[in-house]
Write a protein that binds this DNA or RNA. Structure first.
Lengths: 148, 148
DNA sequence: TTAGCTGCAAATTATTTGCATTCCG
DNA sequence: CGGAATGCAAATAATTTGCAGCTAA
């Protein structure tokens, strides 16, 4: 169910894109950091250790293409930079975030009610939905405990 | 149910903020453009006509404070710039967008199922939800008609 | 009066682009 | 080999900040 390098090779061939070591390492970075929401700069820093030769511009270009090919999903938390996460098969469809207005923590959660809402919207608005993104803002238990 | 200048005056007094003509005009711009999602640059341009003396930095600073006070909501469509919309009383709580991946159109829709989802999440994740934002990506009827 | 605002310009930050060089297929 | 991809540096674009002068309370 998860993405691997074989997928990458296959999908790239289809689209005539070249499988370069840079692109593989960038995708690998996401595979190795499943739970994180990495910005271009984050990916660049993580890669510096093993591949100090890779350029930031290449990271940007690769993130864009990996998103177009469906390997990654872009998310905006409103902090001025785009972040990406691995589009893991089925669940790629639902990435919901709980954003704490106090400490800025980003928690994840999965759900199923979304399916209901989605079909409702699709029917009501005559709009073919292919993906969705939900963000809930509020206060996490930690902060509530601390501030009460 | 909608926000007006009297609200602004009242809320500003509470927080010791000054009611300047610039701030009033910026809020007025949103009142006059209810259905739009305005970026800082958009607001600045709209104001140039009647108030060419207002600075872009002031627009940025005002948008930030108006959001903090709850007059505006910030939304990110992933196009590199932040946008704002009037936080209209109750319904401020729900701003859902249908974003067409083909033409980029942003349609709005309101719903009630969200309430259900919200209470579910709140219970499951021990997170006090104060606001949420939902984005559905897909294809609008126009584009589907054209491209089929 | 005076702390808070404003406009302007300069500084930052994220992202994009031009181009000579390198490399996958 | 040849077009696509890369690295670097320069260019953009959005947003922020420093500061001297203005103004609402």
């Amino acid at each position: 169910m998860s993405i691997d390098m074989a997928d990458l090779r296959r999908r790239f061939r289809e689209k005539q894109y070249k499988v370069t070591p840079q692109r593989q390492k960038i995708l690998q970075t996401f595979i190795d950091n499943q739970e994180k929401h990495l910005s271009a700069e984050d990916v660049y820093s993580l890669l510096q250790v093993d591949s100090p030769d890779i350029g930031l511009a290449t990271v940007y270009r690769s993130l864009e293409m990996l998103e177009k090919l469906g390997f990654l999903h872009r998310i905006e938390f409103g902090d001025g930079k785009s972040r990406y996460e691995l589009a893991t098969g089925d669940s790629s469809h639902a990435h919901h975030h709980l954003i704490c207005l106090s400490c800025g923590a980003v928690l994840e959660f999965g759900d199923d009610l979304m399916e209901t809402l989605e079909s409702f919207v699709s029917r009501t608005a005559d709009f073919e939905i292919t993906d969705h993104q939900v963000k809930f803002y509020g206060y996490c238990s930690e902060c509530r405990k601390r501030d009460e």
